[in-house]
Design a protein around this nucleic acid. Structure first.
Lengths: 150, 150
DNA sequence: TCAATATATTTAACATAGCAAATATTGTGC
DNA sequence: GCACAATATTTGCTATGTTAAATATATTGA
């Protein structure tokens, strides 16, 4: 009998204080604070940064792969890529063999933004590692990966 | 020398595959899937559900406390509470002693929604516990709490 | 080959996130 | 008691999240 009961004896949900979805949001909010701060002076949003990061890491790729890796829904990504195009930070062109596909690539201007922020980004990552601990951080990432089984 | 290096020998950020912010989003996305599904048939969004949950758990409270507990920014919450008012799921009235404060409370109709979904919500929580494991889930919540130190 | 299906992406519409400014009310010091 | 700073909430604006529908191209089978 490990079910949670409320004051009236009825079955109750776990307290919102120990709610997984809320805990994930809270943690994310804290992590993103410094990152948003880092990006604020170059007019880049968190999602735009993710797209640039993925393009830099994996090279030119179609929209679906990009969305999967940057963890964005395609409709959102379409708009974000549009603004990145206007900023000259990425290019987009239809695939030669399959014209349904759009291949997105980072430009030199886009790479420049990443490289300019590299030290700061590294410092933020280091700070997280210091506060959480290297081992616990690895545990965290392992546990979070398991959520994909859901 | 534990710094990550890329192909050119330059200092590199951790792969986006092991990025904490992205891992948090991915996990959250998976967790929310079943919850959104649960809520889809009663026209309640995830955020509206959080507000109702917090009001049910902690009782009537001012907007700031509610936002903190439901993990919402005040501007967002203002609008969400507005729609909940229109649906008749919450009430809102100015505090007697400090008229700047707005006290929000759940209505019986709001409670009814929570109670109707209780079994399903419990099942989702149980499912998560089964997949992740009770101990690891507790570890996860503990680690996530540490992010508040950032 | 051509209609039916499937796939890749975009559009549309509405809700929320996030930031800055505006409002309303309260507290403070002179 | 009044100007002024502080607090609580709301509004305005832009960007993203989410779902459903639309569009365009590719594939398949009769």
């Amino acid at each position: 009998m490990t079910d949670d009961l409320n004051a009236t004896g009825a079955l109750a949900l776990p307290s919102t204080k120990r709610s997984v979805p809320i805990a994930l949001i809270r943690a994310r909010e804290k992590v993103m604070g410094p990152i948003r701060e880092m990006l604020s002076d170059c007019g880049i949003t968190e999602q735009q940064w993710r797209i640039l990061r993925v393009l830099e890491e994996f090279g030119p790729q179609d929209a679906s792969s990009l969305a999967e890796r940057a963890c964005l829904l395609l409709p959102s990504q379409t708009r974000i890529v549009q603004t990145l195009l206007e900023k000259g930070l990425v290019t987009r062109q239809a695939d030669e063999t399959d014209r349904r596909k759009q291949t997105v690539a980072i430009t030199e201007a886009g790479q420049a933004i990443i490289h300019n922020k590299l030290d700061q980004a590294q410092a933020i990552a280091t700070r997280i590692e210091e506060v959480i601990g290297k081992k616990r951080l690895a545990e965290l990432l392992d546990i979070l990966e398991d959520f994909q089984k859901l």
